[in-house]
């Protein structure tokens, strides 16, 4: 066939396109599970890092297995809440934050991950997303079970300046957040501020900003404020439930104590009554045997001192 004839060109192009498309489809289908796994593993690693786990990932021989094992061990639950704080259907892991950010606030799904640490106490991990100087910044904030004290944070960025804004992903910057609180003593929401000029050690609601990275630091502050305040109703509800539970337990404990005290008192009264009855019986018996001349000294030894029961 003539190579330059139209018929040949059509046939050739069709054959080429079909061959290429087939190859690509097969390759994509075969490789998709691997790619999906990689993305998942990376997300799990970030979540684990916020609760100080999976830190030795570099040394692990099989990184994927290591991360999966740590995740299965420590992250015991993941649920979704809406902006009113009510639990929803769905897995926290599946939620795509970028998509949710585009929706109006009332419709957003807010994921929460639960980590059960070695000491059995739960930690709650909240994903956060924001804007730095040159591009997006994101991360995870892990809270203690009081939903206020921060256990750990992990941040990452796309294009912040190394040495300046990019410092937000260094352990030194992130370590500052440990122990800081997002609610103050009056249970008002304060988030954590990122303050220029430092001197924030000992202040529970502020950390030092990055020196030279003003805009990025402001971005971090805004990210925390915006993202955490979305969960406000959820946190409040949980805190309220915790407070109610705490009070209930306290009440139960107090009731139990009171009951025990009452029981103790009753036992004492019963014992006292029993002794009194015995003394009376013996006195009656003594009265009877008085005529027979029994030694009265023995009696007095056996007579206990009667304690008057206190007025209840």
């Amino acid at each position: 066939m003539n190579k330059d004839s139209n018929k040949y060109i059509y046939l050739y192009s069709t054959a080429l396109v079909v061959a290429v498309a087939a190859t690509l489809s097969i390759a994509a289908t075969l490789l998709k599970p691997f790619q999906q796994k990689n993305i998942e593993v990376e997300k799990k690693q970030s979540i684990l890092l916020s609760v100080h786990k999976a830190a030795d990932v570099r040394k692990a021989k099989n990184k994927r297995q290591y991360v999966e094992a740590e995740y299965a061990k420590y992250i015991t639950d993941g649920f979704v809440v809406n902006s009113l704080g009510e639990k929803q259907e769905g897995s926290a892991f599946e939620v795509n934050l970028e998509e949710e950010a585009a929706k109006p606030a009332a419709d957003r799904k807010l994921p929460v991950f639960v980590c059960t640490d070695n000491d059995g106490k739960p930690k709650y991990i909240i994903p956060v997303r924001g804007v730095g100087l040159w591009g997006p910044i994101w991360g995870y904030v892990a809270l203690h079970s009081d939903y206020s004290t921060i256990y750990g944070v992990v941040f990452d960025h796309q294009g912040e300046t190394p040495g300046l804004g990019a410092e937000l992903s260094t352990p030194d910057f992130q370590r500052q957040f440990e122990g800081k609180q997002i609610f103050d003593a009056a249970s008002a929401f304060t988030s954590v501020k990122v303050v220029k000029g430092g001197h924030t050690q000992g202040k529970p609601h502020a950390v030092d900003a990055i020196s030279g990275g003003t805009i990025t630091s402001q971005g971090v502050e805004k990210m925390l404020m915006d993202n955490l305040s979305a969960y406000l109703l959820f946190f409040k509800e949980q805190q309220r439930a915790q407070e109610a539970e705490r009070r209930r337990q306290e009440r139960e404990k107090k009731e139990k104590e009171e009951e025990e005290e009452r029981a103790l008192l009753q036992a004492k009264q019963a014992e006292a009554a029993r002794i009194a009855r015995r003394a009376a019986a013996e006195a009656a018996a003594a009265l009877q045997s008085d005529t027979t001349g029994a030694a009265p000294a023995v009696q007095s030894e056996n007579t206990p001192v009667l304690e008057q029961p206190e007025n209840l």
Partner: peptide, 10 residues
């Protein structure tokens, strides 16, 4: 090259 040595307040 060394932005922290030529920006910032310190």
């Amino acid at each position: 090259s060394y932005p922290s040595h030529i920006s910032g307040d310190a």
